[in-house]
Design a protein around this nucleic acid. Sequence first.
DNA 1: GGATAAACCTACTTAACAGGTTGGTTGAAT
DNA 2: ATTCAACCAACCTGTTAAGTAGGTTTATCC
Lengths: 138, 138
Amino acid sequence: MISTKGRYAVRVLVDLAGCEDGDFVPLRDVAERQQISEKYLQRISRQLVDAGILEGIRGKGGGYRLAKPANEICVYDVLEAAEGTLAPVACLADGAPACERADLCKTLPLWEQFYANVRELFGSVSIADLAEGAIDCV
Amino acid sequence: MISTKGRYAVRVLVDLAGCEDGDFVPLRDVAERQQISEKYLQRISRQLVDAGILEGIRGKGGGYRLAKPANEICVYDVLEAAEGTLAPVACLADGAPACERADLCKTLPLWEQFYANVRELFGSVSIADLAEGAIDCV
DNA sequence: GGATAAACCTACTTAACAGGTTGGTTGAAT
DNA sequence: ATTCAACCAACCTGTTAAGTAGGTTTATCC
C-alpha cells in the first residue's frame, strides 16, 4: 500500500507542474485545489524540499515550485522522498543489515524481482507524464 | 511493503511444499525450521485454511498440508489471504466505494497500472516455483 | 479411558506508525 | 508595521503490526 503521504506528495507535484513555470505557488492554493489539509502538506513539502524536488521561498509572494523540470522528476523519487524506502521487505532496504538467511531464503528472489518492477514502473513515469494524463489505464 | 504476515505465510507454504505430499505436518515443525513463533503461525495458518489454501486436521498426528498442488497455488492468493487486499490505494480495493475524484484524478491510472503489475507478477509465480528456486534474481 | 498431541479460539499487550493538529518563529514583500 | 507564507517542534488520536497467554476441542495411542 502507498500511504497518503506518498500519494499527496505526487498530487502536490502534479498540481505545481500545472502552474505557470517559475512561479512560486503558496501551499494554501495547492491545499485548496487538492482538498488536503494545508498543515499536513507543509510537512510533506518540507521533505520534498530536503530531497531537492521542491524549492520553497518564504515571505509574502513566496511559496513552492518544482526544483527541476517536471519531466525530469520521476514518481519513484517523489514516493521515496515522502515514504522512505519502497523496498518490499526490510532486508532489501538501503543500508539494511544483510540477512543471514539470504542464501537459503527461497523467497528473496521474488522480493527482488518485485522491487525491480517497482523501480522500473515508478522510475519511468515522470510528473510531466501524469500532469498530461499520458498514462493509460490497462 | 509486504508485512511479516504475508512473508511468513509464503514461507509456511514453501516449507510445506517441501514435505512429503499428503502428509499432515504439525506447525511446531514448521515454526522450528523457519524460526518463527509457533503461536503467531497459528493465526496465519488459520487464515490460510479459511482461504482454502491449507487443510488442517486436529489431534495427535494432525497438522497442516496444502489444500492443492503447490503449482496451483500462486503467491498472489497467499499474500491476499494473509494481508487482505494488495491494492496500492484504498479506492482500488475490492468493494471500496467509488472515489468521486476518479474522473479528474491524474494519478489513478498510475496506481491501476501498478496494481496490474502486482497481480501479474505474484499471480504468475507459484509456491512450487519458489520451492524449486525457479525464480532468478534480476 | 486416560495421556498426549495437535489444531482451534478469544482476549490481551506493546510499540510503532499513519494521519494529522496546535502554536508558534522567521523571513520577505508592500 | 503589517501581512503573507515557509519553517519548526511538539503533541495527539486511532489503527495496525506483531506477537503472547491461556484455555478448549478433537483425534490418536496405549
